[in-house]
């Protein structure tokens, strides 16, 4: 015992020393680890920071509209709430809502742009929604496996087409076809832009809807089939209702995308700031207005700020739409997956 202790004792300092360096090294490693983890976490914040920065910096350029007073002699160029939503009066013709920011008396009425955006977006959804949802039902419920393997990637291919190419197609090819087929007076119009926009939206609605449909637990289908229902009855009466919120979310997300989509409408809509209800008239959308006019404006001018205000509107709107859509999808998934467990 004693000799053993004695034998151990002399080596003790050595072990502590070794132990010490090991401890330092371990502490060092731990510190490095913590720094790395901090760095990684910091980078992970980037997505949040970027969203925040987008809001701040787009908002920052628009905000001075609230208090910026025009220079003396330029009072008529001021941007007021009245200016942004009220109609322009004319001595020799009916008053109307006018977007003409480059003018002796600039008119910044946003109404025509909002009408234009809604028109193209609604057409896009009406066009894309049914097609995408039906295709999603076919792909997930009715089609044999080999067909699904063709349909899905094909529609994903559509998603890979850059929007400038869709815009080009609508401008050069689709517009002429529509005009000839329907005998339209105006070649570039809301219908043309809306259909082209629909092409951009189909993959989004399809993907989300298909996802929602496949998340419906197998047990639902099996139960329905066991009760004697056939495939399509099961699809319509059991699977579809269960996935409906998800499909709706897909439509909502598609709507968000359509509102913000720029190049397609810029090239295909004719860009006339009208407020008429007809789909065969030209329209000017919020996003296309920014794209068409931002290159020209003087930094800090009222026109420049109004364009950023449009950016804020687009950002806040799509942000709200996407948030709702996402939460919806997640909750649905949780519910259905919870049901499966």
């Amino acid at each position: 015992m004693d000799s053993q202790t004695a034998g151990v004792l002399p080596t003790l300092p050595a072990t502590t020393a070794r132990h010490g360096t090991a401890a330092t090294r371990r502490r060092f490693t731990r510190m490095v680890e913590r720094i790395i983890e901090g760095g990684v976490k910091l980078t992970a914040m980037s997505a949040i920071v970027v969203i925040f920065l987008i809001f701040v910096f787009v908002g920052k350029e628009a905000l001075p509209l609230l208090w910026q007073h025009p220079e003396p002699g330029l009072e008529h160029e001021a941007v007021t709430l009245d200016n942004l939503i009220g109609p322009t009066q004319y001595p020799d013709r009916p008053s109307r809502f006018v977007w003409q920011p480059v003018s002796n008396v600039p008119k910044y009425n946003l109404l025509p742009l909002i009408v234009g955006t809604l028109k193209t977006t609604v057409i896009a959804i009406l066009f894309a929604g049914p097609l995408a949802i039906l295709a999603a039902i076919l792909s997930s419920e009715l089609a044999p496996r080999w067909l699904r393997e063709i349909v899905k990637p094909t529609i994903e291919l559509l998603a890979g087409i850059p929007s400038v190419v869709l815009g080009f197609f609508a401008l050069i090819v689709l517009a002429s076809w529509l005009q000839q087929m329907l005998g339209l007076r105006i070649r570039l119009n809301a219908l043309n832009a809306g259909i082209a926009l629909g092409l951009a939206v189909i993959p989004i609605i399809f993907t989300v809807a298909e996802d929602a449909l496949t998340t419906v637990p197998k047990s639902y289908r099996e139960a329905s089939l066991a009760l004697g229902a056939n495939r399509w009855e099961t699809a319509i009466k059991v699977v579809l209702p269960a996935a409906l919120p998800g499909i709706f979310a897909g439509v909502v997300l598609g709507f968000g995308r359509a509102v913000g989509e720029t190049m397609v409408v810029l090239m295909a809509s004719g860009n006339a700031a009208t407020t008429t209800p007809w789909v065969t008239d030209s329209v000017r959308t919020l996003s296309a207005t920014v794209a068409a006019e931002l290159g020209e404006v003087v930094f800090g001018s009222p026109h420049y700020r109004v364009l950023f205000l449009i950016g804020v509107i687009l950002f806040v709107f799509t942000f709200a739409v996407n948030l709702c859509g996402d939460l919806y999808v997640q909750r649905l998934k949780q519910r259905l997956e919870g049901g499966r467990a």
């Binding site: 350029e61 995308r257 913000g260 996003s287």
Partner: peptide, 12 residues
């Protein structure tokens, strides 16, 4: 949400 921000807003 970043994935849903309109591309023109990125431009701004």
């Amino acid at each position: 949400n970043l994935a849903g921000v309109p591309s023109i807003v990125f431009g701004l």
